[in-house]
Design a protein around this nucleic acid. Sequence first.
DNA 1: ACCTGAACACCGTTCAAGT
DNA 2: ACCTGAACACCGTTCAAGT
Lengths: 214, 214
Amino acid sequence: MASAAPARRKRKPADRYHHGDLRRSLIDEAARTIQAGGVEHLTLRTVGERLGVSRTALYRHFSDKQALLAAVGREGFVTLRAALTDAWEQHGRGRAGFEAMGIAYVRFAVTHPSHYRVMFGGFVESCAKDADFLAAATAAFGVLVDSIVEQQRAGLIRRDDPELMARFIWSAVHGAAMLAIDGQLRGVDAQGEALTRYATARLRAAIAAGEAMP
Amino acid sequence: MASAAPARRKRKPADRYHHGDLRRSLIDEAARTIQAGGVEHLTLRTVGERLGVSRTALYRHFSDKQALLAAVGREGFVTLRAALTDAWEQHGRGRAGFEAMGIAYVRFAVTHPSHYRVMFGGFVESCAKDADFLAAATAAFGVLVDSIVEQQRAGLIRRDDPELMARFIWSAVHGAAMLAIDGQLRGVDAQGEALTRYATARLRAAIAAGEAMP
DNA sequence: ACCTGAACACCGTTCAAGT
DNA sequence: ACCTGAACACCGTTCAAGT
């Protein structure tokens, strides 16, 4: 990353025939490229070149470009899940924690826009194809569902179907994140902070405890 | 569209040197291809071939592929705007109309998933580049803002900043649409109907008239 | 003005061959 | 097992040339 001379690869340890952990390196390099220039700038040739490896070496570790993208997306979901869990637990697993989750979610999207697009943009064709990708996404979603169940038990929010509630909340926050990323929020509030604040406040009102709706 | 013989183009009227309205045909054909197989299946060569035209003829009408996609996306926003206006007006410009707008929105996305993705997927690079695209998107958004202002005047909903309220509502509905398109809503409710119904009901509660929040 | 055809600089992917 | 190098079938885009 910080190496200045591009054509130099003559160090002793790195020059062995077998690359240390090429799979890991490929994912990292792909993620870096995507973060820097968007998915459309990711080419297998460049990523191989940057790692000092043939452009077909990748096929030992991934079935095709899609699979590499799926792996990148999967890691995004792992990171997102960690961020959500953190927010929820650091803020007392209650109303404040729930709001913090929403803010953390949008912040993740805004700071990793291209990564976020790989996760949701449909680049991973009918995600169902990649089991790992789907599992990571489901796990991230699970954090939200769990927090909803917990709040229901504490009498903080309505007792509607937790899955349905989670989808609704996710929709709203995901939508805010997308609008922020897409630059639809021009001028003031380009980062979507005001929108996120307003959205979490209104969502709280929307799901406040009351009679259940079966 | 219904022509069976592929290699036959010898009819008298269609054989003139100048194509009738190539720009229109290009947009239509591109939209058709996208609807059928997704954006990634759109190639300029095929679209030209299908119209019986050189693959470079397109450059007389669009600066590049991006510009063609922007035109397709623009038309999507025009259609969406019409659908929203219809729903709003056909259902009495009130609470029912507002709900109908949400349902119409998700229905548009679900019935034109690939088209919807072109509009929001970031394929049109930092949409700001294409003025027509942006104008059409803003116009569609305007229908929502107008309906909010009208409902505020009628005392039906809170008097928060209409733009902010519109962004919040849009976020929620856009998010539901994306989840439905992405196939994240597997099994039951694959079309997102239950989610949309629940979302509109909860959103109504979220923005119900009350003390304003400046 | 509008369109063509050849050419250019790229892609992802395959496959026999190397170590 | 892991990687290479040449080859294949594609792209979008350009540009001189045709009508």
